[in-house]
Simulated assay, not measured.
Amino acid sequence: MATHLITGAGSGIGAAVARRLHERGDNLLLFARDAGRAKEIAAGFPGARTLVGDLANPDRLSWALSHQSLPDRLDSVLHIAGVIEMGPVGELTPKAWHSQLNVNLIAPAELTRLVLPQLRVTSGQVIFANSGAGLTANAEWGAYAASKHGLKALADALRQEEKPNGIRVTSVYPGRTASPMQAKVHQQEGKEYDASRWIDPESVATLILTALDLPRDAQIDDLTVRPGR
């Protein structure tokens, strides 16, 4: 039975992935920013364990995990949590840059570093839920796109470094996906949000599980998916 560490399992793509893995009987280790949120998320996944740590403060993740119990082995780490704050470069404050870089890039790098020993035991897998913004940067998406471009670089470097240990690394680049984050994006854009126009999180979850379950004689480095409507 495989064990997966998942960030962002509280909603959207992360919740869809966690639900699918839970339904098939895999072990889940769900990451939450505080004890209250951990309790909320765990209620939806009976038998799942939680880890508490604030992705917005990656400098403290090592300390947080040192006070909690990690499994001896992990089959995958699924980095799905993310934040966005739009705005033109001429108006974005350092706080906006730091918040997005911390959660979207530095925290995934640090969390991966902290659990690499457990992943090496299983020749496991790291999957990064990136974004179309990780490939193309548009106006007012500068800080978010920068964090996601950096996430691509992180994945590419990690893939080469951990190949001798048998660890597979996959980046998934979804276009606009129906989720609370997408609703926030529309609010920031001043547009009406219609979830039916965008990718269902279940469709992205299918891609992530495809990469996760691919036989070990092959690997998927990058997957791009766009709305079909």
Rank of each mutant, 00 (worst) to 15 (best):
I6E: 07
I6S: 02
T7G: 01
A9Q: 04
G10S: 09
G12E: 02
I13Q: 07
L21F: 04
E23R: 14
E23W: 10
R24L: 09
N27G: 14
N27T: 15
N27Y: 08
L28C: 09
L29D: 03
L30Q: 11
F31R: 11
R33C: 02
A35R: 15
R37T: 14
R37C: 05
I41V: 15
I41W: 14
A42G: 06
A43P: 10
A43Q: 10
A43G: 01
G44W: 09
T50H: 12
T50K: 13
V52E: 03
G53N: 08
L55A: 14
R60I: 10
W63C: 10
A64N: 08
D72T: 02
R73P: 15
R73D: 07
L74W: 00
S76W: 15
S76R: 09
V77M: 01
L78D: 04
I80Q: 02
V83N: 11
E85T: 04
E85N: 10
G90F: 08
T93G: 08
T93I: 08
P94H: 07
S99D: 15
Q100E: 12
Q100M: 13
N104C: 10
L105P: 13
L114E: 06
L116N: 05
L119S: 05
A129L: 15
A129M: 13
S131C: 09
G132F: 13
L135N: 05
T136P: 02
A139W: 10
W141T: 05
G142K: 13
A143H: 10
A145P: 04
A146Q: 03
K148P: 03
D156R: 03
L158E: 01
R159Y: 12
Q160C: 03
K163H: 13
K163I: 14
P164N: 00
G166R: 10
I167K: 00
T170G: 14
V172E: 00
V172S: 01
V172C: 11
P174Q: 04
R176V: 06
T177A: 04
A178S: 15
A178Y: 12
M181V: 14
Q182V: 02
A183R: 11
K184D: 09
V185Q: 15
V185M: 09
H186K: 07
Q187D: 08
E189P: 04
E189Q: 13
G190H: 12
K191E: 06
Y193A: 06
Y193R: 00
D194W: 09
I199D: 06
D200C: 12
L207T: 11
I208F: 02
T210D: 11
T210R: 12
L212D: 05
L212H: 01
L214T: 00
L214H: 06
P215H: 04
R216C: 07
A218Q: 02
A218I: 15
A218G: 04
Q219W: 14
D222P: 05
T224D: 05
V225L: 14
V225Y: 12
P227K: 08
R229D: 02
